[in-house]
Amino acid sequence: MEENKTKKISRLEFLKNTGRGIFLAVLGAAGGAALARSKKSSAVWQIDPAKCTQCGRCATECVLRISAVKCVHNFSICGYCNLCFGFFQAGQRDLNSGGENQLCPTGAIKRKFVEEPYYEYTIKEKLCVGCGKCVSGCTAFGNGSLQLQVRHDRCKNCNECLIASACPANAFVRIPAASPYITKEGNENKL
């Protein structure tokens, strides 16, 4: 007789409670598994310069109209060459910063005399579109001190990077946000 006194619940209510229990269990299991596999630090996209082939898609595939990828200059491994293959077009007339001699389509590289025979090259990031032409020249014939990198003051950190899915060399990787750049001389911060 005791049992009749317990609160009666309708069949619908019972089904709902069961359903909620099942969903909670599934959600808990899936969430727990995902949490166990998740990484503590948040992630950002970056280009691994060792894999990059300078195909030029960074300039065109980004969701931003002017790509978040820019050429950056790693001064510490630059040869400061007079004849810079990142700066001068093949078959240049003179070794000066005349527009007809420059490789960069937007004139984003500044050439400055330091001392015989060394010249300093600086990227004007505002003008750079990330086409990678200079990077290609520097990597092929020089030290490779010019490299393409995702600039995190511009990058929207999309869930799926459109450049990454278009990259022919799979050079886009996710790395911890705490050390968000990969330089050529030390790739210690790769995943």
Binding site: H73, F75, G79, C81, E115, N143, H152, Y181
Partner: peptide
């Protein structure tokens, strides 16, 4: 490196690579 990074005689200081931090 094909062209070893030079040792400057003038007091030129090596610029640092800019790394704007992530969010």
């Amino acid at each position: 490196y094909k062209f070893p990074p030079p040792e400057f005689e003038s007091n030129y200081s090596l610029p640092v690579m800019q790394r704007p931090p992530a969010r």
